[in-house]
């Protein structure tokens, strides 16, 4: 089975994208989704050494918050298991933000600068050193690069006739992306997810297009959507190649 996938972007942003893949099987679409969630590694703080913590939160609670802060991850420069040291030193009154985290390697820094870590009052201080480790979502959810990654079938909407003259104008809600009879791709939020709004007074037939999946991919800021999707595809390819060599006689 050698065939090219046809990929078409519907929405494209650095951290958020929607694209249509044609010619994929349901199993492969789900494989890609799972690889994006579990197999693409990201940096995340894993070990914290507290020098001083006189804030209102326990060390463990702050450790948990630090672990969830997304860190930029240049996957070309690091291997799984490598660590980068980070440090935070803030004195109250004021709030310690993720942007206050100092890094020993400029390639790995907080992806967002204004996540509040802990609010400090007068006389309160936090000083800590932390190790971020590169690992996969399979190991811990904080290493997941993709956020709410999913897909839907592409749905084809056809006008089959006019609605009866005395039919009530009921809403016909559909979410995702539709393909019109002219082959045009339309995201349903353009017409408020209501087919009755786009095709008033028409009778419609809606059915799934076989082998066409609309992926919605959002990243936490560790890397771009393109990076996440290509790395996920590569990881499936690498595993298929590994299987091929292992079963070879």
């Amino acid at each position: 089975m050698v065939a090219d996938f046809e990929v078409e972007f519907i929405e494209r942003d650095d951290r958020n994208a929607r694209f249509l893949v044609r010619g994929a099987s349901p199993a492969f679409a789900n494989g890609i989704r799972r690889a994006m969630i579990a197999d693409v590694p990201t940096f995340s703080i894993d070990t914290v050494r507290f020098v001083e913590n006189s804030s209102v939160m326990f060390d463990e609670m702050i450790g948990l918050r630090l672990g969830l802060v997304p860190l930029t991850t240049p996957l070309d420069d690091f291997e799984v298991g490598e660590t980068v040291t980070l440090a935070l030193d803030v004195e109250g009154p004021g709030t310690a933000y993720s942007g206050d985290i100092e890094t020993s390697d400029d390639l790995v820094e907080p992806a967002d600068d204004n996540i509040p870590i802990i609010e400090l009052k007068e006389q309160q201080r936090i000083e800590l050193e932390a190790d971020a480790v590169l690992d996969t979502g399979r190991e811990h959810a904080k290493h997941q690069g993709g956020v709410a990654v999913g897909y839907r079938h592409l749905q084809r909407v056809e006008v089959v006739g006019d609605a009866g003259e005395f039919d009530e104008g009921e809403p016909n809600i559909l979410r995702g992306v539709i393909e019109t009879e002219d082959g045009e791709l339309v995201a349903t939020d353009e017409f408020d997810h209501d087919l009755a709004e786009r095709y008033p007074g028409k009778e419609l037939a809606v059915h799934d297009v076989p082998g066409a999946f609309v992926f919605h991919v959002e990243t936490d800021g560790s890397f771009s959507v393109e990076e996440l999707v290509t790395r996920a595809a590569e990881s499936i390819g690498a595993r298929a190649a590994e299987l091929e060599t292992k079963v070879a006689v």
Partner: peptide, 11 residues
Amino acid sequence: TCGKVIGEHWE
């Protein structure tokens, strides 16, 4: 539930 970073929007 979904893991989206939301802390930055609170203030």
